[in-house]
Design a protein around this nucleic acid. Structure first.
Length: 880
RNA sequence: GGGCGAUUAGCUCAGUUGGCAGAGCGCCACGUUGACAUCGUGGAGGCCAUUGGUUCAAGUCCAAUAUCGCCCACCA
């Protein structure tokens, strides 16, 4: 029996040691075991080069709580870890690093660059995992995966080919979002729209052969370089006679047709729109309808290209400025107005993205979205909180094709080959020797890589060995719950769902638990640029992982953002300290020879704490079942601090210090038994301290983390005892209150004279003697049926069916006592008024459930009874 | 232009099916009893944003309003 717990709680002494103990002991491992039910969570793979932030800390804590709980419940619990290659982000960082060394991606060449990226990955890749370990995550590291692993890459290739063969992937010229900084196409989901005040320019275009103009409005004047038409609404009487005529593009003097298209809103702007098919999705469609050509005016870096005439080579914003100046100079500029519009930025680098035409690869979404929506509408896919289901559905209902090709090198290269001679497109696992169409041997592979999310979308099954038919897949898939931030519903959740349905024939998880964002104490988003981020590792270093974890999952509700306060971490560290010291107390009183297998003859307080524990087990488990993690944690917290520490330990002390060995033995065994269950209940939330304590307990088996989750038992439910104990506590609080109001020193013991005519109360008071003596500084307890012998020179505590007198005549300040009783009276008057108000309402009496009405009647009786005593006392005191 | 969330004690937030408003921190008073001052005991502090509705009964359900925040959207 290892007894000596150090005097103060110092998490640093054991957190790392315990993590190794668990990990090396194989407790995190999950294996196919047909005798057990599987429970599976796929960890959202963090970026391989990322660092742990509060968001990671939050959702990994939640996952760890769920997985530890289910593991203890007897499930074969798999928590699959791994990292994501994060193509665009990693590539950008490697490019940056090269730049610092005076090197560039282009001069290095593809192969050498990828080697650099692998180098980078090897250097920083382990970092985030080590950081996660500090948090206590119990995932199965032996199964760790990386999205660029061979197996996962096979899965990516397989899916690409399958989708291509089903015509769900196609290549085409479409308007995509181009990031001039990252130099790649990005998907719609990767564009962040930001509202800002800008300008709208009204520009007039001369009509060919007439002394007339048509005025258009634009927010991007530089795009006039790519104008190929002017469009008006066919119904617009103002422009009837212009339709079919030709306008002259200012500055470039290009001739462009004036066309009619219903897309144009007559009310907006001037009712005439310039059409730039290569730089706007709507214009692209209009161009398509009217057989217009394309005219791309931007280079990869968003400088103007050779189509821009004299503006060739200028940056897009310089060109804008110059063009506006020139338009003004030549009198084409009619007006400039303030205009609010939303501008798309690259989600990663915040550069303004340009919509432009480009030949890219796309996933055809319409057919894939359908079953993903159905799964939601059929309630197969359940969101926590539910409102996010509507966000998911709304996005899928309005989904557009997904641009998946990226002009990057770090990632999964498209399994696509082209023939240089006949331009044949070949999609295959291996590079073909010859063109399947013209038999040429001049073949090259598409240089592009896939959107990172294309591989993450397969995570729930690619990590289990798919496309091989593995035991793991049959056993662990589909998974049980996905835990992630609401900000990646579109990027990831949606894509995993439709990918799983398409490849596996079923949804990848039943529940989606969405966490909110962690903000700083002023409610601002934590960000690197603001420098207001709080490093979870620093918090762990100062207060321990348990305190951080507890802070992250309490005091807020799923899906809501939360502000992070160090004071809360400190409070939770104090809670850990409380438990630590309660354990020290138990261990200190624990004699080897007192330990028994049964608890012995239970006293009332024993039954009370066992009953309360039993209830907490039930409620906390139910809360966890409903993903009400914060509420479960709160209940365990309150049980430990208020009921176990503040009441039970105090109640039991006399027995521990007393002569009755039998009674002492029972107390010790109950203390230990309850403590063991407390550790189990708290373990998912605070794994380190609970395991550390567990390792110091006698009778322990192996590790707490693989012990059994406590189960509610009807046999340990003692409602009557709970009620009686509540009565005693009420009395003790009343006595303490009265004494404190009189400023009576705790050292001053006083006898209690309890007057009651009620037999039940009498019994309760009788067995409560030791509680009063120890918890309310009583010297002795006398129970009387009649108070006639008791004078007015006492303090008195009025209870339901009972009045307790404390004869301390020399210490009583009668004015204060009258004040105290007056307040009591006021309170009772309020209650009586409320209860009577209800009871005098016929509708209430007739329509409310009987037990509610009876309850109110009881209360009325009780309050009246107490009121009478208080009034009597007051009269007595005033008469003095 | 749509959609969503928040509004409860000085601060940050809970409040699960409608049935007497809670916690942590902070504040006030007292306390060195052999688990713990990272503590104990007692206390003060709330028209549950506003207005209407449903109901015997509303912080909780419904409808508007206001303020703050977020998401989505191809009106140049």
């Amino acid at each position: 029996m290892a007894k000596n717990l150090p005097k103060t709680y110092n998490p640093k002494d054991f957190e790392d040691r315990l993590y190794s103990f668990w990990n090396e002991g194989g407790y995190f491992r999950a294996e196919v075991d047909e005798a057990k039910e599987p429970y599976t969570i796929m960890m959202p793979p963090p970026n391989v080069t990322g660092e742990l932030h509060m968001g990671h800390a939050l959702n990994n804590t939640i996952q760890d709580i769920l997985i530890r709980w289910k593991r203890m419940e007897g499930y074969e619990a798999l928590w699959q870890p791994g990292t994501d290659h994060a193509s665009i982000s990693t590539e950008a960082r490697v490019v940056e690093k090269l730049k610092g060394e005076g090197r560039s991606k282009d001069e290095l060449g593809r192969e050498a660059f990828i080697e650099e990226a692998w180098e980078w990955t090897r250097k920083y890749g382990g970092r985030i995992n080590n950081q996660l370990k500090k948090l206590g995550v119990s995932c199965d590291w032996s199964r760790e995966k990386f999205t660029l692993d061979e197996g996962l890459s096979n899965a990516v290739e397989e899916v690409f080919i399958r989708l291509y063969e089903k015509d769900l992937i196609y290549r085409g010229d479409r308007i995509i979002n181009w990031c001039p900084n990252c130099r790649t196409a990005i998907s719609d989901a990767e564009v962040e729209h930001e509202e800002s005040m800008g300008h709208i320019w009204h520009i007039r275009y001369p009509i060919k052969g007439e002394d007339d103009y048509v005025t258009i409005a634009t927010t991007r004047p530089e795009t006039i370089l790519g104008d190929l038409a002017i469009a008006v609404n066919p119904e617009d009487s103002r422009y009837y006679d212009l339709i079919g005529k030709t306008a002259i593009l200012p500055l470039l003097n290009r001739e462009i047709p004036i066309i009619a298209d219903e897309y144009v809103e007559m009310e907006f702007g001037t009712g005439a729109v310039k059409i730039t098919p290569s730089h706007d999705p709507n214009d692209f469609d209009i161009g398509h309808r009217h057989g217009l050509d394309q005219c791309l005016i931007l280079n990869e870096d968003a400088t103007i290209n050779e189509n821009g005439g004299v503006y060739n080579g200028l940056d897009r914003y310089e060109a804008r400025k110059k063009i506006v100046e020139d338009l003004k100079k030549e009198d084409y500029l009619v007006d400039i107005k303030e205009h609010e519009n939303s501008i798309g930025h690259c989600e990663r680098c915040k550069t303004v993205a340009e919509p432009l035409i480009s030949k890219q690869w796309f996933v055809r979404m319409a057919d894939l979205a359908k079953p993903a929506l159905e799964a939601y509408y059929k309630n197969e896919l359940n969101f926590v909180p539910g409102r996010f289901g509507r966000v998911y559905a709304h996005w899928l209902e309005n989904i557009r094709d997904w641009c998946i090709s990226r002009q990057l090198w770090w990632g999964h290269r498209l399994p696509v080959y082209y023939c240089r001679d006949c331009d044949e497109v070949m999609v295959s696992r291996e590079e073909p020797d010859r063109c399947t169409k013209c038999d040429s041997s001049d073949i090259y592979q598409d240089p592009d890589t896939l959107d990172t999310w294309f591989s993450s979308a397969l995570w729930p099954f690619s990590t289990l060995g798919w496309p091989e038919d593995t035991e793991d897949i049959r056993y662990f898939f589909p998974t049980d719950v996905l835990v992630t931030g609401y900000d990646i519903i579109f990027f990831w959740v949606v894509r995993m769902v439709f990918s799983s349905i398409e490849q596996m024939g079923e949804i990848p998880f039943k529940d989606v638990f969405l966490t909110g964002l962690i903000k700083d104490s002023q409610g601002r988003k934590m960000s690197k640029s603001l420098g207001n981020g709080i490093d979870p590792l620093e918090v762990i270093d100062e207060y321990g992982a348990d305190a951080l974890r507890f802070t992250l999952v309490t005091g807020n509700t799923p899906g809501n953002d939360m502000r992070f306060y160090m004071e809360r971490v400190e409070a939770n560290r104090n809670f850990a300290n409380k438990l630590w010291n309660a354990t020290r107390f138990v261990l200190m009183n624990l004699d080897e020879e007192l330990l028994r297998n049964d608890l012995g003859a239970l006293k009332e307080e024993d039954r009370w704490i066992l009953s309360r524990m039993n209830t907490v087990i039930k409620e906390a488990t139910e809360n966890l079942d409903r993903y009400e993690i914060g509420m479960a944690a709160q209940k365990v917290y309150e049980f430990i601090w208020e009921e176990y520490c503040d009441w039970y330990i105090e109640m039991v002390k006399p027995r521990l210090y007393g002569e009755d060995i039998e009674s002492k033995g029972t107390a010790v065994n109950v203390l230990l038994h309850v403590l063991e269950n407390i550790l189990k209940l708290l373990h998912p939330f605070m794994p380190f301290i609970t395991e550390e304590i567990w390792q110091h307990l006698p009778k322990r088996k192996e590790a707490l983390m693989v012990s059994d989750w406590p189960v509610y038992s009807e046999d340990s439910y003692y409602p009557q005892v709970e009620k009686q104990m509540a009565y005693i506590m009420e009395a003790i609080k009343g006595i303490r209150n009265a004494r404190q109001k009189m400023n009576i020193a705790p050292s001053r013991k006083a006898p209690l004279l309890c007057v009651t005519q009620d037999r039940g109360v009498r019994e309760v008071l009788d067995y409560g003697r030791s509680y009063f003596i120890n918890l309310s500084n009583a010297s002795e307890i006398t129970i009387l049926e009649d108070k006639s012998a008791i004078g007015d020179d006492n303090l008195s505590v009025v209870l339901d069916k009972c009045e307790i007198f404390i004869p301390l005549r020399d210490l009583i300040d009668y004015d204060k006592e009258i004040d105290r009783l007056e307040k009591e009276k006021e309170k009772l008057e309020g209650e009586i008024k409320r209860v009577r108000g209800k009871l005098s309402n016929e509708n209430f009496v007739n329509k409310a459930p009987k037990d509610v009405v009876d309850g109110e009647r009881e209360k009325e009786k009780k309050y009246m009874d107490m009121m009478n005593r208080v009034v009597e006392r007051l009269e007595g005191l005033r008469a003095k």
